[in-house]
Lab assay of single mutants.
Amino acid sequence: DEDSERELEKLRKNNASKEEIKEVLKRLGFSEDEAKKLAEKAG
Rank of each mutant, 00 (worst) to 15 (best):
D1P: 11
D1L: 13
D1S: 13
D1M: 13
D1W: 14
E2K: 11
E2P: 12
E2S: 12
E2R: 12
D3A: 13
D3G: 09
S4F: 15
E5A: 11
E5W: 15
E7V: 15
E7F: 14
E7L: 15
E7A: 14
L8Q: 02
L8A: 03
L8D: 01
L8R: 04
E9N: 10
E9V: 08
K10R: 14
K10V: 06
R12S: 03
R12G: 02
R12V: 10
R12I: 14
K13T: 07
K13Q: 09
K13P: 02
N14G: 09
N14D: 06
N15G: 14
N15Y: 09
N15W: 06
S17H: 03
S17R: 06
S17T: 10
S17P: 04
K18N: 08
K18P: 13
K18M: 14
E19Q: 08
E19P: 01
E20F: 09
E20C: 13
E20S: 05
I21K: 00
K22Q: 10
K22T: 14
K22F: 15
K22I: 15
K22G: 02
E23L: 09
E23A: 10
V24G: 03
V24R: 09
L25W: 00
L25T: 00
L25G: 00
L25S: 00
K26P: 00
K26L: 14
K26T: 08
K26G: 04
K26N: 05
R27V: 03
R27T: 04
L28V: 00
L28A: 03
L28Q: 03
G29F: 00
F30H: 02
S31G: 05
S31K: 03
S31A: 05
S31N: 06
E32Y: 03
E32T: 03
D33E: 13
E34R: 04
E34P: 00
A35E: 01
A35V: 07
A35K: 00
A35G: 02
A35F: 05
A35L: 05
A35N: 01
K36S: 14
K36Y: 09
K37L: 13
K37H: 10
K37Y: 11
K37W: 08
L38H: 04
A39N: 02
A39S: 09
A39L: 12
E40I: 05
E40C: 13
E40W: 07
E40M: 07
K41E: 12
K41N: 10
K41Y: 12
A42R: 09
A42S: 10
A42K: 07
G43R: 08
G43D: 11
